[in-house]
């Protein structure tokens, strides 16, 4: 029996990180993967442009990183598991970027999470 691959479908507010996204975001994600190493985190913080160029980020990806905007980084092919290393290094946590992505204040984002449990 043959099974066809799943047809991509729109899920609101969600990007499914598939092969196309993985190709688009490869350089950006590879840079973020390097941040497992403290020396690489220090090198990025010392020379952000130089570090991004070492990993051949596209100009759009460099702009997305500079913007510190998670949605822009995701649209540039970033995968949240790798981006988390960059975001964490920049002193942000998942609630900060949750607020950023949803256009809420951090307090309102936290309140929304609490609400989900009621």
């Amino acid at each position: 029996m043959m099974t066809e691959p799943q047809t991509p479908r729109a899920i609101s507010g969600t990007i499914v990180f598939d092969g196309a996204e993985a190709m688009k975001g490869y350089a950006l994600n590879k840079m973020c993967y390097s941040f497992n190493d403290a020396a690489n985190r220090a090198a990025f913080l010392a020379d952000e442009n130089g570090y991004c160029n070492r990993f051949n980020l596209s100009s759009g990806q460099i702009e997305a990183v500079k913007s510190r905007n998670a949605l822009s980084m995701i649209r540039a092919g970033g995968n949240i598991y790798y981006l988390a290393k960059l975001i964490g290094m920049l002193g942000l946590n998942v609630q900060d970027i949750g607020a950023q992505q949803t256009g809420l204040s951090v307090d309102d984002f936290k309140a929304k999470l609490l609400q989900a449990g009621l």
């Binding site: 899920i11 969600t14 998670a70 949240i80 988390a84 998942v94 992505q101 929304k112 999470l113």
Partner: peptide, 13 residues
């Protein structure tokens, strides 16, 4: 849970 995208913070009890 969902960390990424405009739907970040999505929880479905």
């Amino acid at each position: 849970h969902q960390l990424d995208g405009e739907r970040a913070g999505f929880i479905n009890k």
